[in-house]
Each structure stands twice: as structure tokens, then as C-alpha cells.
Nucleic acid binder design. Structure first.
Lengths: 269, 269
DNA sequence: CAGTGGTCTAGACCACTGG
DNA sequence: CAGTGGTCTAGACCACTGC
């Protein structure tokens, strides 16, 4: 005898929300979207506007079910997907939490370089050294990666990461200037923890996903000096673009990895 | 009024099946295993013994539910996980199929090297050239990767892959001799399609998962000759171990990738 | 049209966490 | 103990495929 709460979609009754405005004249499917997908979008919006902060718990499944007027199972499926995308973190008996880069466990989620013995914890945390942090203008390449215009203001950071006092990674970062206004070398130096954690707490920017392009390269003279290696040491060039919610690029990064005592680990499924 | 088919586990009534014999004295949990996990194991067994062949459909969810005496939802959850692990492939309206490396779509699932323009289909299929295929004995390294003993018989294959007539990948493969008995350079040459597809159809070996260790290296003289490059061209060294069902390693492979016109693409989640 | 996977619901009960 | 996520069921109906 329930009020039969319209079990199936009514053309996305939610606030005007583009669900399929990707490519122009490609597919003309009626764009059927299951309820749980719509719920997923609503949850995503709440995350995006900061209704729930990183590392805090979101409302329980039952609460959300009431709020969205759907069954718990539907909320569950929405959360399941968000959890599998690492946006949420389920903890049985405790609740569902907004994922963060600041936690011990998931720290350095995007760093795939690990020591030859396979155990990242064996060498302790990296020593970070900020070489430079300055305002500059987006090159063609950076502009494309960050989806901004060439010449737009960006922040450029250069740093070296060392493991066991051995310089191992030389990184150049480009960040869109606006969201990261106020970022300085000092703040980077003073902050103790992953850079993405700082981005979260200080600038409300949460990196959610990234793509890397990997190549083998030889260093130039400046790079040799910074990494204290010879010009004949081949390096891994790892070019990363990191995205926040809604696939908005918020960082472009180029890392040079020394792979004498480390390797880049990747799992294929 | 159903016969209440014991909704909760009875200590894994299925045929003696090691579920958690990984590390020795680490965790002593009572190893509670939900029903759908047990179903998953049963389905896996059927896959493993070849009850359902690659690219064929497995029984429908309802049929499996009857067979295993559980609800359709439980079967569904088991299949969901297997599908997310790429062991099964769901196709709405048609059925659930055993995944294969032979299909056009999923071909070269494990090859992450793509041309600079980002479109693998733009350069057509790779030209394969078998350099060598011989019996040999496992080195320490190969033995460890394949979980066999040093000196055990292995097959060793060397080949070059070219894109647009440019030699781009030099690969060395090591395969345990027993399962691949009868593999020759001729058969490799004659077969038109991915090597893993050949493994499936000719040797009943399905690669399900793999791990790669990536480094930057410089080539030796022989490698230079085969790839037609200079000794100062840095290369990506991609060392892969590929596994069948139950995490049994069945291939160790070392690829040298030329990354002038290609890059190794990786998605971080 | 029948058969398949996909969605949704409602309700019961279990496992885990913390007070 | 109450509250949370996790499992399981039964049943209804939808979307897609192919005959």
C-alpha cells in the first residue's frame, strides 16, 4: 500500500541537469537514465558544492533514501558506484565518508613509483624540496591540458622528491592561477603532507582522477644537476593531468622519475 | 513458503576450496564469506575447468539461481563482480559471455602503448615479426615470476612489433613449457590476431590479469639493431607478469617500447 | 513475441562500530 | 545497545535483442 512513488524516471525531474551534452550529432538515443544515476548526480552535486567536507561522513543510506524519495537499495547502488570511483569511502558500521588525499592509508594514491623491494613503507616518506613557485603564463601545451587559453595566468611549481636522501623525482607543476590564488613556495614548504591534501584543505580543490602519459627520455643539463645524475641516465617522463569533479582539469604535471632503484607499477585488469 | 534455503553461509559447504591461504600468521578472522562470494567461486570453477568456453554465453541468471539454489539477486551480484574483473561480459538482452582476448573490441587489452594522436585505430594493426622461439631454462628471475623452479623448461619467444613500418616494440617472452607444449615460431607466425587470443584457442590459457613494472633504460647493441635505433635512444622497459585464473602466473614478458611517436597511457583512479 | 540482463522496491536479517 | 553499512530474498516491471 505504499504511495507508489513513481518507480521509473520522469525525464529527470531534478533541477535542469545536462546528462548527455557531450558530442554533438553523434547518438540520438532517448538518453534513458536510471534512477540511481540521477541520485548519483545529486550526490555529486552535494560533494561539489561542499555540502559534505572531505573525510566527514555523508548522511546514512536511509536518510538519503528519504531525502531523495527512493528506496535504500537505489541510494545504495548510487553510492556503490561513487565508492568504486574513489569519491566516497564506505566503512561498515560507521558510515560513508567523503574520500580525501589526506589520510594515511590512501596517501599518495596517484604516485605509482615504488622501490624495487615493492614496499613503499620501507623507505619512509619522501623528502620534499621546493625549487621554485612562480606565476607564469600558460603555454599551448599547458593551456590545452588545463582547458584554458594560451597565455592565461598559471602557477608553476618545481620540486624535487628524494627517497633515502637520493633525489629521485623532479616535478614541474602547472596550476590554474584563479583557484590556487595565494599559493606560495612558503606554504608548500611549511605544509607537512601530500600536495593534494594541501589543495583540499587550503584551496577546496579535490583531485579525483588523473591520466598519465609515460615516455622514456634523457635529461637536459639543468635536470641532471637537480637530480644529481649524468646526462646518460634514462628517465621516466610522466606527464599527468589531474581532474576534479565533472572532469575539470586542475593540474598539469610533468615528473621525471629515476628508475634505478624504483619502478613504476601498474596493474592491468 | 519457500523451503528457506539456508540464506546464510554454512562455512563454505563447497568442495574444499582455499579462500585465504595467503600470508601465514597474519589475520585470524573467522573468514565470514557472503553467499554471493561463494557463488562467485563456483562460477569461477566452471570457467576454470572449461565448462563454458571463451566468447560463449554462460547460463542465464535465473538458470544459475536455480542451479545454486539462491535468488537471482545473489547470482547477479556474483556476476557483477566477475564482470567488473573482466572475466565475464554482460550484454543486455543477449546474455552473459565469457570474456576473450579474441574480440575486436577488447583486443590488445593489455597493450597501453598508443600513438601520440591518442587514437590506436589510426595506425592500423601492428606488424608482427617473430625473431625467435626456442626452448630454454628458467633463470632465477623468470622462475620467480612464473612460480616455477630455476632451470625448469620454458619457451622463450622474441618478437618485434612495428607500427607504420617503424619497429616500435621489442619483446621477450617466457612461457612455462608444459601448458604451451607445441608452440613454435611457425604457429606464431601463421596466427593472425593477438597472441593472447592464440593462447586461448590453441592452449586453453586465458590471461585474466597482469602486472607491469616500468623503467627507463638504454638499449644494448643487439636491441639497437632489432629496433633500428641508436644506442642513445632511451626506451621504456615494461616487465609484465600475466596471470590466469586463481592468480597463476603463465607468462613473463619484457618489452622495450620506443616512445618517440607513442606513449604509455595510464588512468589513475 | 519470449528471453535476457537491468532497475526498483520493501522488508528481513547479519556484521561491524561505538557509546 | 542503537545506528551504520552489507547481504539476501521475492516480486514487479523496464530496456534490449533476436526470432
Amino acid at each position: 500500500m505504499p504511495a507508489t512513488p513513481t518507480p521509473y524516471p520522469e525525464s529527470t525531474a531534478a533541477p535542469s541537469q545536462d546528462v548527455s551534452t557531450t558530442s554533438a550529432a553523434s547518438q540520438q538515443t532517448p538518453a534513458f537514465s536510471p534512477l540511481y544515476q540521477q541520485i548519483k548526480v545529486l550526490i555529486l552535486q552535494s560533494l561539489q558544492v561542499g555540502e559534505w567536507k572531505p573525510s566527514t561522513a555523508i548522511p546514512s543510506e536511509v536518510e538519503l533514501a528519504v531525502r531523495f524519495k527512493v528506496s535504500q537499495g537505489t541510494v545504495r547502488k548510487a553510492i556503490d558506484e561513487l565508492a568504486s570511483e574513489n569519491l566516497l569511502l564506505r566503512r561498515q558500521g560507521k558510515g560513508t565518508f567523503v574520500a580525501t588525499h589526506a589520510e594515511r592509508q590512501i596517501q599518495y594514491r596517484f604516485l605509482k613509483l615504488i622501490p624495487d623491494n615493492g614496499d613503499p613503507s620501507s623507505e619512509g616518506p619522501a623528502q620534499r624540496q621546493i625549487i621554485d613557485c612562480k606565476r607564469s603564463r600558460a603555454s599551448v601545451e599547458v593551456a590545452r591540458a588545463l582547458a584554458i587559453r594560451q597565455g592565461d595566468a598559471v602557477l608553476q611549481v618545481r620540486r624535487v622528491l628524494s627517497f633515502a636522501s637520493t633525489p629521485t623525482i623532479l616535478e614541474d607543476l602547472w596550476l590554474p592561477a584563479a583557484p590556487f590564488k595565494g599559493l606560495t613556495a612558503e606554504r608548500l614548504r611549511d605544509y607537512d603532507g601530500p600536495m593534494y591534501a594541501l589543495f583540499e584543505t587550503e584551496f577546496d580543490v579535490r583531485m579525483v582522477r588523473a591520466e598519465e602519459k609515460i615516455r622514456a627520455v634523457l635529461p637536459d643539463l639543468e635536470q641532471c644537476a637537480l637530480l644529481k645524475i649524468s646526462a646518460r641516465s634514462p628517465l621516466l617522463s610522466v606527464e599527468r593531468t589531474a581532474y576534479t569533479y565533472n572532469d575539470i582539469p586542475m593540474e598539469m604535471r610533468r615528473g621525471l622519475y629515476l628508475t634505478n632503484k624504483h619502478y613504476y607499477r601498474n596493474a592491468l585488469n
